[in-house]
């Protein structure tokens, strides 16, 4: 037995410990991520009945065809697009501006950083409740608006503004997170670049345009994509805001909320899974586009 080469024994031991170290990850990711993905892909082609007698009936592409004529899917997508178009640019710009200010040699900036970050660490359930309280018809926001002699709104009940209310809350809550990402990126810009630029007689404005912004480009890609993905997965706020209905008049309906409704309200699991698959494809496409763009940028 002892003549076995030391090297061989060692490599077996390494392999063994390697797999032992990986076991929890393999088991958990296998059961709760990889199997679910397979489940989703397969069952999206079935009609699944879970209430009472459980039954699976192959449905071919029926679930996918149904999506095309399902108005609520289009409304949810439309809400999401509107949301992306408004929230993502605003929160990104806000995050850059805040990060740039906090990156100057200003006293007490760490305090401001801690303070700004408060909304990001607060649960979306709590934030939604706080904002619902502020959005109340007689609430703080309307009092403030009428004090400024601006028009007031029925933030919770009017389909035209309900989604805007959630957007406002989301920008407020997410911008600080991206601000911190920008701050981290700003630390990586080599000071020598600025020094060299100063020697060449560059104005602060030129430095910003020619050094800072190009450096922030990859991070900005990242932030925008994260913003879009986050938006596609919006659920908590809409659910709590509308009591699970996506109302008023579907104004706060999101794709994930729609999936939840089809699965647990209409008990149409197969269709819900088909919607899930569609959402997954959209998100993964966005992510992959980001990855490829991101790579190119970093190799510049």
């Amino acid at each position: 037995m002892l003549n076995k080469t030391l090297w061989n024994k060692r490599s077996t031991r390494e392999t063994l410990s390697g797999y032992l170290f990986m076991t929890p990850a393999i088991v958990v990711l296998g059961i709760f991520l990889i199997i679910p993905v397979i489940f989703t892909i397969v069952l999206a082609f079935y009609r699944v009945q879970l209430l009472g007698e459980i039954s699976f009936r192959f449905a071919g592409f029926k679930n996918f065809v149904r999506m095309g004529s399902d108005e609520r899917v289009w409304i949810a997508l439309q809400n999401t697009v509107e949301y992306v178009a408004i929230v993502v640019p605003i929160q990104t710009i806000l995050a850059i501006v805040l990060a740039l200010i906090l990156n100057t040699q200003i006293k007490g900036k760490s305090w401001f950083r801690v303070a700004f970050f408060l909304p990001t660490v607060t649960s979306s359930a709590v934030l939604t409740l706080i904002f619902m309280w502020i959005y109340n018809t007689n609430g703080l926001l309307n009092s403030f608006l009428s004090f400024l002699r601006l028009p007031t709104y029925n933030w919770l009940g009017d389909p035209d503004v309900a989604l805007k209310g959630i957007m406002l809350m989301n920008i407020w809550a997410t911008a600080p997170l991206f601000m911190v990402i920008y701050l981290a990126a700003l630390q990586d810009i080599p000071e020598s670049l600025y020094e060299a630029a100063s020697i060449d007689g560059a104005t602060p404005w030129e430095k910003f345009w020619c050094i800072t912004l190009p450096f922030l480009k990859p991070v900005t890609f990242f932030v925008i994509v994260m913003g879009i993905i986050g938006t596609f997965q919006l659920f908590d706020q809409s659910y709590i805001f509308s009591g699970g209905s996506g109302g008023p008049n579907n104004a706060t309906l999101t794709i994930v909320l729609l999936i939840y409704q089809y699965a647990f309200k209409n008990l149409d699991m197969g269709y819900a899974l088909a919607l899930t698959l569609m959402l997954a494809l959209v998100i993964m496409t966005v992510t992959l586009i980001q990855r490829s763009l991101f790579k190119e940028e970093s190799f510049d």
Partner: peptide, 12 residues
């Protein structure tokens, strides 16, 4: 909150 959703979720 959302009584029937909860009951249905629990039934399935």
């Amino acid at each position: 909150s959302q009584y029937m959703d909860v009951i249905k979720t629990r039934l399935i």
